[in-house]
C-alpha cells in the first residue's frame, strides 16, 4: 500500500471536487490510481463524497447552481480518469430513467439531479428535455429501470407527469418502477395527486428520496 493512508486519497479527491478544482481532481485521481487505490472506492468515498458535501452546501444555501456545476465538472474530470480502471462489476444502486417532460426545454434542474444520481451510485439514462410521456415508459421497460424521475419547470407541462404515471399504471410495469417528480411548480401535494411515489425539492434531496424508494422496494419484495 502507498505511503499515505487510503483515507487521505479519498479526502483529497473529495476536497478537490468541493473546491471546484478540476485540475486538482484529475491529479488526485491519477495519484490514487498510481498508489493502487481501488477506483470504485475512490469514486464512492472521494468524488461522490465531494459531490454529497457540495449538495449539502447547496441545501444550506452556501453553494448555488454555479458552484454545483463547477463541482460536477471537477467530479466528471476525475471520473474520466478513474472509470477506465473500474472492474466491470461496478455495483449499482439501481437504474433511473430521467428527463424533462414534453413541452419544457429547461433542463438545468434535471441535469443537477442526474449528476447527484450518478454520483450517488445510480445508473442513469438521461432522455434529455422535451420528452413525450410514452418514451419514459418504453425506456423503463427496455432498461428494466427501478425509477422514473420526471422534472419540469413550467406549470404548463405538469400534466404530462400525470400522464406518465397513468401510462405506467396501464402497463405491466407499475409494480417494479417507482416514479419521482420535482421541479419549480411541483409540490408534494401535486406528486401525491398524480400518484407519484416520491417528491424531492432539490437535487440533493432527490438522491436521498431515490435511495429510500429503492430500499423500501427491496424490503417490500423480501
Amino acid at each position: 500500500m502507498a505511503d499515505k493512508e487510503q483515507a487521505e486519497y479519498f479526502k483529497e479527491l473529495s476536497d478537490a471536487v468541493l473546491d471546484m478544482d478540476e485540475e486538482r481532481t484529475v491529479t488526485a485521481a491519477q495519484d490514487a490510481l498510481d498508489n493502487s487505490i481501488d477506483p470504485y472506492e475512490a469514486i464512492q468515498n472521494g468524488l461522490s463524497d465531494g459531490m454529497a458535501r457540495a449538495g449539502q452546501l447547496f441545501e444550506d444555501e452556501e453553494y448555488f447552481i454555479p458552484e454545483l456545476l463547477m463541482c460536477s465538472d471537477a467530479m466528471y474530470a476525475g471520473l474520466d480518469v478513474l472509470k477506465p480502471h473500474l472492474k466491470a462489476t461496478g455495483e449499482s444502486r439501481g437504474t433511473v430513467v430521467i428527463g424533462v417532460i414534453e413541452g419544457d426545454t429547461h433542463d438545468i434542474g434535471k441535469n443537477m439531479v442526474r449528476i447527484m444520481f450518478e454520483t450517488g451510485g445510480f445508473h442513469v439514462i438521461d432522455l434529455g428535455r422535451d420528452v413525450p410521456p410514452q418514451r419514459f415508459v418504453d425506456t423503463a421497460r427496455e432498461s428494466k429501470a427501478d425509477i422514473i424521475a420526471l422534472s419540469t419547470l413550467m406549470t404548463t407541462t405538469m400534466d404530462g407527469m400525470g400522464t406518465v404515471v397513468k401510462l405506467l399504471n396501464e402497463s405491466d410495469l407499475r409494480a417494479g418502477v417507482k416514479v419521482m417528480v420535482g421541479g419549480g411548480p411541483i409540490s408534494p401535494g401535486f406528486a401525491k395527486r398524480i400518484g407519484a411515489d416520491g417528491y424531492a425539492v432539490n437535487a440533493a434531496e432527490a438522491v436521498k428520496v431515490a435511495r429510500e424508494l429503492v430500499a423500501r422496494d427491496a424490503v417490500g419484495a423480501a
Binding site: 471546484m20 454555479p66 456545476l69 438545468i108
Partner: peptide, 11 residues
C-alpha cells in the same frame, strides 16, 4: 445559454 453563463460567473 444558462449553464454556460452560470459557469462563466466563476470561470
Amino acid at each position: 445559454g444558462t449553464e454556460n453563463l452560470v459557469r462563466l460567473t466563476i470561470r
